Deep mutational scan, measured.
Amino acid sequence: MPVRRGHVAPQNTFLDTIIRKFEGQSRKFIIANARVENCAVIYCNDGFCELCGYSRAEVMQRPCTCDFLHGPRTQRRAAAQIAQALLGAEERKVEIAFYRKDGSCFLCLVDVVPVKNEDGAVIMFILNFEVVMEKDMVGSPAHDTNHRGPPTSWLAPGRAKTFRLKLPALLALTARESSVRSGGAGGAGAPGAVVVDVDLTPAAPSSESLALDEVTAMDNHVAGLGPAEERRALVGPGSPPRSAPGQLPSPRAHSLNPDASGSSCSLARTRSRESCASVRRASSADDIEAMRAGVLPPPPRHASTGAMHPLRSGLLNSTSDSDLVRYRTISKIPQITLNFVDLKGDPFLASPTSDREIIAPKIKERTHNVTEKVTQVLSLGADVLPEYKLQAPRIHRWTILHYSPFKAVWDWLILLLVIYTAVFTPYSAAFLLKETEEGPPATECGYACQPLAVVDLIVDIMFIVDILINFRTTYVNANEEVVSHPGRIAVHYFKGWFLIDMVAAIPFDLLI
């Protein structure tokens, strides 16, 4: 008679799926529990143990900040960024110097990925580790590398530091407007667009060049630039800015003055950032001319202004700041037409079709709590990747769950009947059967004279019903998954307890 339990259901295979997918890609990662103190490590794979030199037993239950890997060259700011990422709910990448158990130093890129439950609360953290440099290539500990984003994938490793954006290309926007319009339909740009040429040739750093990471940081200074100062900065030398009595002219307006920039070969870094931020506020060169004239017309309804409409929906549905990093990277690809469009465009503009998908598509409701890094690593669709929660398995109709209350009560009843059979069957065979043979035949009273025979008949009927119930009862397979398919249940029961239950259900007393 089957006594099969499996009270692990309803099970959740999400954690096993993450481990299996990460292991298949030869990654070095740990999984931490966000619900406990210090976000203790609950799993670390073999790749991480080989990377740091510690065994799994030495890593388990330690804080996922990996303070046991810190050393003299470990930056405090990087460690603080990892700790801050564990307090938030967004994906974050941090470069930090770690030390192995043998004392060797290596520069590592740590990717902190939160995993949320159905309520939107962070319950786990996945920390992925990628070695960037070994100890002989690690720089000085005073050099802070965590304020910069990861290198873009479309640049060669040897040319990542030679990417320079020439400031004269930004200063000569109005001069290039006529050349853009003359391109017409034969050019790649839309009317009114501004073409910015980027020099990728390796050259020595000069005062006129600005690194790509500095251009990325310009967006942080746009908020500090007032509207009046932006307007004066875009007017140009024809209309000098008016300053109040006793007030000095704005240095932001002076930063885009061609006369002032041409007199000296070098520009201050602050002026460069502010000038680029001011130019980015204009949607095209037409807006710059309109600002000089004193009238700013409404933005025209053409394809170039609607190019950012799908980007707005993608940004609203993005799951991490990696989408913004990807957008900034692609927006700086050289030799393309940049349409400086305000994100607050007309909502009635139709979304044009684009061959290049900048932001990841909208994630469906079932995966809105899973970050983009987890979705990318697992390579699963929205119909396959579940949320991290207890999910009731989908069972067929008329199927009994093996952990249901009805099955528990039924098993206790069958257990009592088995005990009765084990006690009274030998007793009936030894004593009652002998008395029946010696006594007179009682054929007239039937079952009324033999109450134990009636009980034995009921017990046999219950055993037959138990066999039928076992054909529709779920079970737990070797992978700790609840199986509810009727065919698989029948095959599993035939290979197991079916023969024993059938022999126990045969009414031998009635056959004798």
Results as ranks from 00 to 15, higher is better:
A188P: 07
A260F: 08
R5S: 09
D119K: 13
E365I: 04
S182C: 12
C64F: 02
R92Q: 08
P310E: 04
D102Y: 01
I42N: 01
T65W: 09
S331A: 07
H143N: 06
S55D: 08
G88T: 14
D321K: 09
A228M: 06
Y327M: 08
F106C: 01
L171C: 12
S379I: 03
G24S: 13
G294F: 07
A193L: 01
V195L: 05
A204H: 01
I336F: 14
D16K: 07
V115W: 09
A188S: 06
T337Q: 12
H143V: 11
P241Q: 12
C265V: 12
P361G: 09
T201A: 10
L155V: 15
L324Q: 15
A282E: 12
D323S: 08
S153I: 04
S182F: 05
V59D: 01
V115M: 10
V180W: 04
D144G: 14
S351L: 05
K373M: 12
G186T: 07
L109N: 15
G236F: 15
I123E: 09
P361L: 05
L171G: 14
N369E: 06
H309K: 05
F129L: 05
T329F: 03
I330T: 14
F22N: 07
S275V: 07
L165V: 06
F125H: 06
F48A: 01
G71V: 01
V195E: 01
K362L: 11
T17C: 13
M308P: 06
I288Y: 15
H70V: 07
R5F: 07
L248K: 03
L109A: 07
R269C: 14
Q25F: 06
L315E: 15
T152P: 11
D67N: 09
S178M: 06
G226W: 05
Y43T: 01
L15D: 01
P168M: 01
R269I: 14
K116F: 12
A307Y: 13
G294E: 12
R148N: 14
G294K: 12
L170R: 11
D46Y: 05
I336Q: 14
S104G: 13
A83F: 06
S55P: 06
G103T: 10
P141L: 15
F106E: 01
P205A: 15
L296I: 13
L69G: 01
T367F: 10
E91A: 10
L173R: 13
A89G: 14
P258E: 11
L107C: 06
V36C: 15
A290C: 13
N38D: 06
P241I: 12
G262I: 06
E58G: 01
Q247F: 15
S331Q: 07
L311Y: 09
E357T: 11
C49H: 01
T17W: 13
T353A: 14
G186V: 09
K28E: 01
T270H: 06
T201H: 14
E214I: 05
D111R: 07
E58R: 01
K101Q: 01
K362D: 14
P361R: 15
R366C: 04
M218N: 06
S255P: 10
E90A: 14
A121K: 14
V113I: 13
L343F: 13
V215A: 13
H254E: 15
S320T: 11
P10V: 13
R148Y: 05
A9W: 14
A172C: 05
D219Q: 04
S55M: 04
L155D: 14
L165Y: 14
S266N: 01
I30Y: 01
R4P: 15
P157Q: 06
L69F: 01
I18H: 03
P202D: 14
I19C: 04
D136M: 15
D346W: 05
I96W: 01
G139F: 12
P157M: 11
Q11P: 12
L315F: 07
V41C: 03
G139A: 15
R281V: 11
G381R: 03
V325K: 12
P300K: 07
V122G: 06
G381V: 08
P297A: 07
R366G: 05
A156L: 14
C265S: 14
I31M: 08
V3H: 15
V222G: 08
I336K: 14
E289T: 08
L170G: 15
D213F: 05
K344F: 06
R328D: 13
P157W: 12
S104K: 08
C108F: 01
K362I: 09
V196R: 01
A97E: 14
H309V: 09
A156M: 06
H221S: 15
G158K: 07
Q84T: 05
A382G: 11
Y54N: 01
P202Y: 01
L316S: 05
K373T: 13
R62C: 07
